[in-house]
Structures are given as C-alpha cells and as structure tokens.
Design a protein around this nucleic acid. Structure first.
Lengths: 328, 328
DNA sequence: TTGAAAGCGCTAACAA
DNA sequence: TTGTTAGCGCTTTCAA
C-alpha cells in the first residue's frame, strides 16, 4: 500500500502539500494540486484512516447507536446516513444498544475507543434523557432525528401533524364521521403530532371529539389489537380507525379479520410509517411514508457541518385498500 | 483522556508492560498484571483505537457490507455480530452496497481506508462472484453466511432441507396431499435446500411429484402472487402452498384473500424466514425461524479466530394460523 | 519477565 | 504558497 510519502515523492512535493490536497485545504496552486491528484491516481493511494485519526484528532467516524423498534426504520436511516458519510470520506458505525443497565457502558466504550466525530440518534434513544445526557458529557456533536428539542444536541424536527390532518381529510372524504384513534407511545414526543393532526382534522371537518373513540397505544401490535377491540365493542363503534403507527394498525386489522369484518366496508383502518408489513397486509394498509433515508442522510450531513435546508422533508400519504376500495 | 503513559506511571511500570496486560499477552507476573489493571480502572483508561491500529497494523474492525433484501434479516445479523465484536474489543462497520457498477468501488474504499481485520457477507452478496473475488484480492479473512461453498472465504453452511421436510410433514399431517411449491431465488444457492426438502417430504409421504405444482419464485411478493395465481387456476388446484420465503407466501396470501378463499380451510399457506410481516399477517403465517443473530455472532467469532461448534444452529418451525386452525 | 527505543502514516504548528 | 519538524498513542523489536 502506497503511503503519503510515496505520493509526495512521485509528485515531487512535500508530504504536507499532499496532505493539503487530500484535505481540500485552500492555498494550493492548481498546477500542484493537479500534479498531486495525478500521482494519487497513478499510485492508487488511499489514506490510512488510523494515521489520520491519530495525527489529526478526528476519527472520520459517525456513530449511530440504535435500539431496534423496527428493523426497516433502522436500516433506512442507516443506509441514508452511510451513503452521505461515504461520499464525504466518513464511515458510519452502528451499534445496537440494549435498554438495560449496561446501555451507558456500551455507549461509553463506543465513544471512548472510537472517538466518533459525531453521533446520531433516532427514537426511542433520542428521547431518553439518560442516554442523551450521557453523550452530552463527552462534548461530541449530536444530532437527534425526530427527538424532542429540549435535550442536548441538534434535533431534526419533523412535523407529523400536517400529514396526519391529511390522513383525516382522506378518511372524512371517504364518508367517515366516527373515526377512532389509537395514540402514539407517550414517550415518543414528536409523534404526538399525529394525535394533534387527528384532533385538528376533526375540528376542520366540524366533527366533535369523542373521548371514547380515543384509545391509548404503545406502538406495538398488542396495544393496537386491544384498542381496536375496545373500539369495536362500543355501543356505536367507529367506521374507521386511525392508528398512530403501522404495527398498531396491523393489530387492529387482525382483530377486524378475526371478527369477519369487511375492510374497508365495515371498518376502515389506517396506520403510519409505511412499514414493509403494511404493504404486505391484506388489504394493504393506508399509511404515511416518512423519508427515513433522507433524514438519515440529513443527520449525517448536519454532523459533518453542512448547512441544510430541511424544507423539502416530504411526507407522503399512501392510500391503499384498507381505507379505500379504489386503493391498491 | 488518560493515555497508556499515564497508566504506566500510575502503576510504576513501563508502557510495554501495560500494553502486554491490555493485549492479554503471556509473560506478565500476576502481581504486576493486577497492579496495571488496578491503575487502568483507577484512571478510567481506554485505549485509543487509532493508535493501536497504526502501531499494531490491525484495525479491530469487522466490516459487514450488505445489500438490503430484507431489513429484519440485516439488523438481526448486524445485532448478533455487533455484540460479539463488542465483547471482544472489536467494532462492526456495516455499509450498504448497491448492486450497480459502483459496487466494487464502494467495497474498495471500505477495505483500503478502514483496513478491516475481517469481512462478513450474507445473501445475496455472499453468492456474487464479482463481490467475493474482489474481496479475495485483498487477502482479508472472509466469512460468508449461507453462501455457496465454492467461493473464496469460509462459509457458514446452513441446512434448509431438514426443516423444510418438517414443514412438509406438518402440512401432510394437516391432511394435505396436493401441495404447491414456490421455488427459491435461483441465485441463492443454499436456499435450494428448501426445494429439496419439499421433494423429500413428498417422497417420504409417498406422494408423487407433480410438475404443475412447482412454480418459479424470485423471493419477492410479486413472483409469489403470480405463482399463487397460476396454482389456484389449475384444474385441480393444491390445498396448500409452501413458498420458499415469507414475502412470496404473503403475496400468495394476498391472492387468496382477493379471491375470498378461506385460509387455511380452502388453501393453507406457509413461508420461510419468520419475517416481522409474517407475524402481522392475517392469518399469521406458518413459517421457519432462522437464528440470524446467532449466525451473525458466529461469523464475527470465526473472523476473530475462535473455534466454533456450529452444531446447535437451530431452525424452528413456527406453526401459525395460515396452515392450522389450532395455530395462533 | 521487563524495559528502552524506534516508528506506524499522517497532520499541526511553525518557518521559509 | 510551500516545506520542515515534531509528535499523536500505541506496538514492535530487541536488549537487559
């Protein structure tokens, strides 16, 4: 493997000049820069990460400790972030964190041995004060995706409310007036926007809020199924159920099937996340697609010091057969 | 951050002795060893990875380049491997590889800048000669999970056949004689065992193989749906369909639902993988659980030079409602 | 069994 | 704008 010294010799310049070219520093004459670049190519030179880390006191590593609520969510974020890192000469190291007493120890090890230049976090970790405060101690840049803004680090705030309102508008346009809602996990602070959107959607349509139509959820299948059972057993059951995530919606779907209800004829069901399972359900689930790869990439870019215009973070309402006979 | 020099001073020994203790080398007197360990604890010393890499010419990194056929599969492997790495002072770097013309370039960058001490691969990458041969050039230890044994690197061979036979035995015990099969993706060499198991299962039960009951699959929902349609339109359709993976089985399930068939009464459906969606389907899908976390951990341990007894790699037949009224 | 010295490949600080 | 020098924190080699 050629080293920076080899390149310097080949190009007839000093090591430092090569270093400057590699690091895209200013103050290098174009002619020299070109010569160095040519030598790099000719020799197939690749900088040694370890040496750069040691000398430069940066690791070129972004860490993504995650806890696994949903595999698809994680891999999407990871893929977006890893690509953004790769394009900028960085690497992404992702490590699973169990939510037990050892969580901070694993974090410690990750941080102190790898010395990442930045850390990114997604729910649920990004809303856990224990985790976030622990990271804060190390004074490493932190970006949290969809986390509450009152903790250490930068938050990529997303607005679940508006698209949730759109979902309500869709359901209402399908003729529903009694719409049940299964709430987000209480610890997932930004997801509360989905609830706000539900309320706002009713309000816009001039439909009164009915407490009995709102049931607590914990983002898992079981709580969705429980909530659906309760809703369907009401004296006057809803004709549609909007669950704050797909897993709960799929739980509701199972309950509906088990009662031989016709979907969406007897009961329409909608979720949130566009999980792989939502596509594979029968009928396929109406849901909301979040741009997780984009969010992952944005988090990485923020950590690498880029300015972002986060305006175009687009949610997408995906209408499928579970709420609409004309859906696919 | 304390360095190894600080520890040496604190313990009153040389740097080299501290190094020896940290690396668990022989030839250190227990008394000294204890003294050093005490100092390490007292100072909260953590070795600097970059320095170790540079001096020692090992990176303490295992790379896991993946292509994403299924998020759950990837994260399971990743979690298993990352934990195994962590326990041994290693780190796992996973990077998505697109199957385009740049695949080898991304690999190159990963290998030459990170210099991983080992690489692990899962399907489909582990069966792609282009990828594997490229890695072979670098002379880095490679472990492939569920890959064909004729390429570079060590393979963790898994036997899909036996559990597939068990699946057939289950279906036959439920009274089925005409059982349709949707084949594995032809490029996934080890998964062909699922097909062999199907054939063997028929043979054991003394049921003749019928070509019309065997349909080609590509591991995606669409091919599963297509195959199911073809099967259901036979003059004498099967009473059960065994798909070589869950996605295809879920495609078949959708087709069955769209024809208002009763499941499992009119048609029983079984898959393979125990994907999250298989649990969430209605009825929940009978399938096979593979120990992906264990396989991920095994791959990492192999790369780190441990001897493994891979006997206890256990498949599990998961019987659910899609094949059995008494399933859950 | 322990220690001293050299050096891994790069960048920071400074000098020219 | 370019080059020189020192040194990042550890392991290797070799000597004691």
């Amino acid at each position: 493997m050629p080293t920076i010294t080899d390149v310097a010799k080949h190009a007839g310049v000093s090591m430092k000049t090569v270093s400057r070219v590699l690091n895209r520093e200013a103050h290098v004459r174009p002619a020299l820069r070109a010569r160095v670049e040519e030598s790099v190519r000719a020799l197939g030179y690749r900088p040694n990460l370890a040496a750069r880390q040691l000398a430069g006191n940066r690791s070129f590593i972004i860490a993504y400790p995650f806890n696994n609520p949903s595999a698809a969510y994680i891999t999407d974020v990871l893929m977006g972030a890893a690509r953004a890192c790769g394009e900028r000469g960085y690497h992404l190291v992702s490590e699973p964190i169990d939510l037990d007493d050892q969580a901070t120890q694993v974090l410690d090890r990750l941080i102190t041995t790898l010395r990442p230049d930045g850390i990114m976090l997604t729910p649920p970790l990004c809303d856990m004060a224990l985790i976030v405060n622990h990271i804060a101690k190390f004074d490493i840049p932190l970006v949290r995706i969809a986390g509450r803004p009152d903790l250490f680090g930068e938050s990529i705030i997303i607005d679940d409310r508006e698209v949730s309102e759109q979902m309500m508008a869709h359901l209402i346009s399908e003729g529903h007036r009694r719409i049940g809602f299964i709430t987000p996990h209480p610890d997932h602070s930004l997801a509360q926007g989905r609830y706000q959107g539900y309320l706002q959607g009713l309000k816009t349509a001039g439909i009164a809020v009915e407490a009995e139509l709102i049931r607590p959820g914990l983002f898992d299948v079981e709580s969705g199924a429980d909530a659906a059972r309760a809703l369907l057993e009401l004296r006057e059951p809803p004709t549609a159920i909007f669950a704050a995530n797909d897993d709960m919606a799929l739980g509701a779907l199972q309950v509906a099937h088990s009662r031989n209800l016709n979907i969406p004829g007897d009961i329409a069901i909608a979720g949130f996340d566009d999980s792989p399972a939502s596509r594979l359900a029968w009928p396929a689930l109406t849901t909301v697609r979040q741009p997780m790869q984009l969010l992952g990439a944005s988090a990485a870019r923020l950590l690498l010091g880029e300015e972002l215009d986060l305006d175009p973070i687009q949610y997408e309402l995906i209408i499928r057969g579970s709420t609409s006979a004309s859906g696919y």
